[in-house]
Every structure is written in C-alpha cells, then in structure tokens.
Lab assay of single mutants.
Amino acid sequence: EHQTACDSYWTSVHPEYWTKRHVWEWLQFCCDQYKLDTNCISFCNFNISGLQLCSMTQEEFVEAAGLCGEYLYFILQNIRTQG
C-alpha cells in the first residue's frame, strides 16, 4: 500500500515546522500557482528547514530567488499569519 502524500503535505504543517521537502514542495507550488520563473530560483539556496526559511529576511529571499524572491517572501508571510 502506498502512503497518501497529503498526510504530510506542506499545507497541513505550520511553516516553522516544515522539513526540507516541505520547503521544496511549497516552492514548486508557488511556481505553478503564481507562474513564477523557476530559472530565477536557486533551489540549492532553499535546501533548508522551515524554521530557517521563516527566519530569512526579504533581502535574503531576493538574494536566493532573484525577482521571485519578493513574491515568495510575501507569500510565506501570508501563510504564517493565517496559519
């Protein structure tokens, strides 16, 4: 039997508790949902936990993801305040 992915999907966990996999799933979702250019995102810069992600500043997001960084930063802040 296969496990259902939704059990541990990033949407069901507060961002501060995300694993590295959750972070990448979220990035992929943002790219799909908001039509962000994946080429401007250095995924290696996001090989981090949710706690590390949440402690990043807006400037660090821009450094890590170029033009997309600002969008990603605000998307994350939205999730954190709603969560």
Rank of each mutant, 00 (worst) to 15 (best):
I79H: 10
G83S: 12
Y17D: 13
L51K: 14
Q77K: 10
I48F: 08
N39W: 00
T19N: 11
L67C: 14
R21W: 08
S42K: 14
Q28W: 09
K35D: 10
A65P: 04
F43A: 09
R21A: 12
D37Y: 00
G69T: 00
D32N: 09
S42H: 11
C6F: 15
C54W: 01
W24A: 10
E25D: 06
F29L: 05
W24H: 13
G83C: 12
F74N: 15
T19G: 04
L67P: 14
Q52R: 10
W18I: 11
I48T: 03
F61W: 10
Q52D: 08
V13E: 05
C68P: 13
H14E: 12
E59S: 10
N78Q: 13
K35M: 11
C44N: 14
A65G: 12
G66I: 00
D32M: 08
Q33L: 04
C68I: 07
H22I: 00
Y34A: 06
Y71N: 15
L72V: 01
L51C: 11
A5C: 12
C30V: 09
D32W: 06
C68S: 14
L53D: 05
Y71F: 10
G66D: 04
K20F: 01
H14M: 09
L27K: 02
D7G: 14
V62Y: 07
E1D: 12
L76E: 01
R80Y: 03
C40V: 09
A5R: 10
C54P: 03
T19E: 08
V62L: 05
I79W: 12
D32C: 08
F61A: 02
E70A: 08
N47G: 06
S49E: 07
Q82W: 06
T38V: 12
S55L: 07
Q77R: 10
E25P: 00
C40E: 14
C6S: 07
I48N: 00
F43Q: 14
E16S: 11
Q52S: 07
Y34N: 07
Q33F: 06
C31A: 06
C54M: 05
C40M: 11
I41V: 08
Q3M: 14
H22L: 04
W26H: 00
L76K: 00
V23R: 02
G69D: 01
K35H: 08
E63T: 12
S8Y: 15
V62T: 11
C40P: 06
E59Q: 10
Q52E: 13
K35R: 13
V13I: 14
C30M: 07
L51P: 10
M56D: 00
F61P: 03
F29G: 02
C44Q: 15
I48D: 00
F43R: 11
R80I: 12
E63L: 06
Y9C: 11
Q28K: 12
W10C: 04
C68A: 13
A65E: 00
L76V: 00
Q82A: 11
K20W: 00
V62P: 01
H22D: 14
P15S: 02
S49C: 11
Q28R: 11
E60G: 05
G66N: 06
Q58S: 07
C54H: 04
L53N: 00
S55G: 10
V62W: 05
C68F: 09
K35Q: 13
F43V: 08
F43L: 10
R21K: 11
T38H: 14
R80A: 05
C44A: 14
T57Q: 06
F29K: 07
L76R: 02
L72N: 00
A64N: 13
Q52I: 07
N47M: 08
N78Y: 02
Q33A: 11
P15M: 06
N45G: 05
A64T: 08
I79T: 08
Q3G: 10
C54L: 10
Q82C: 12
F29E: 07
S49F: 04
K20N: 02
Q82P: 07
N47V: 02
K20A: 08
D37K: 02
E70V: 04
D37R: 06
F61G: 01
L36S: 00
C30L: 05
F29V: 05
D32F: 04
D37T: 02
L72H: 03
A64C: 11
Q82D: 11
C30T: 13
L67T: 14
P15N: 04
T19I: 01
R21I: 01
G69F: 01
W24F: 15
R21N: 13
C68R: 07
N39Y: 10
F29P: 06
Q3T: 11
F29W: 13
A5P: 13
Y17P: 01
R21L: 09
A5E: 13
T81Y: 08
Y73K: 00
W24C: 15
S55H: 10
P15F: 05
W24R: 15
E25K: 11
L51D: 12
F61E: 03
E16V: 10
Y17E: 15
E1M: 04
G83F: 07
M56E: 03
I79C: 09
E25I: 04
H22Q: 10
S55W: 02
Q58Y: 06
T19F: 03
R21P: 07
G66Y: 00
N45Q: 11
F43E: 10
F46L: 07
L72K: 03
Q28F: 00
L51E: 14
Q33H: 13
R21V: 11
M56H: 03
F29Y: 15
C31F: 06
D37L: 00
S49T: 14
F74S: 15
I48P: 04
N47C: 09
E16P: 03
Y73S: 00
T57D: 06
L72P: 04
H2W: 08
Y34P: 07
W24N: 14
H14Q: 15
Q82Y: 10
I75L: 14
C40R: 09
L72Q: 02
N45E: 11
V62M: 07
D32K: 13
Y71A: 15
G66W: 00
Y17N: 13
T19V: 00
W18N: 02
T38R: 14
L67E: 15
V23K: 06
F43P: 10
I41F: 11
E25A: 13
F61L: 03
A5K: 11
L27V: 13
T4I: 13
E59K: 10
E60Q: 12
Y73A: 01
Q52C: 03
F74K: 15
I75V: 12
G66V: 01
Q58P: 09
G66P: 12
F46E: 05
S49W: 00
M56N: 00
F29Q: 10
C44I: 13
V13F: 05
R80V: 07
S49G: 06
K20D: 02
Y17C: 12
V62H: 04
L72G: 02
W18T: 06
L67M: 12
F74E: 15
E1K: 07
Q3R: 09
G83D: 11
W26N: 06
S42G: 08
M56P: 01
Q33D: 11
L67K: 15
W24S: 15
N39R: 09
H22E: 12
V62R: 10
Y73D: 03
H2R: 13
A5G: 11
N47K: 11
C6R: 09
C68E: 14
W18C: 05
S42Q: 12
V23T: 02
T57C: 04
T81N: 14
E16L: 11
N39V: 07
Y71W: 09
L51I: 11
Y71K: 15
C44H: 12
I48E: 02
C40I: 06
A64Q: 07
E25F: 02
Q3V: 01
G69E: 01
T4S: 14
R80N: 05
Q3S: 09
Q82E: 13
A65N: 01
G69W: 03
V23E: 03
G69C: 00
L72M: 05
S55Y: 07
N39I: 00
E70Y: 07
L72Y: 00
F46S: 03
L36D: 05
F29D: 14
S55M: 10
Q82G: 12
F29R: 06
E25L: 08
E63Q: 09
P15E: 03
F46H: 03
A5Y: 08
Y73E: 02
V13D: 05
E1A: 05
E60P: 03
C30R: 03
G83K: 13
V23N: 07
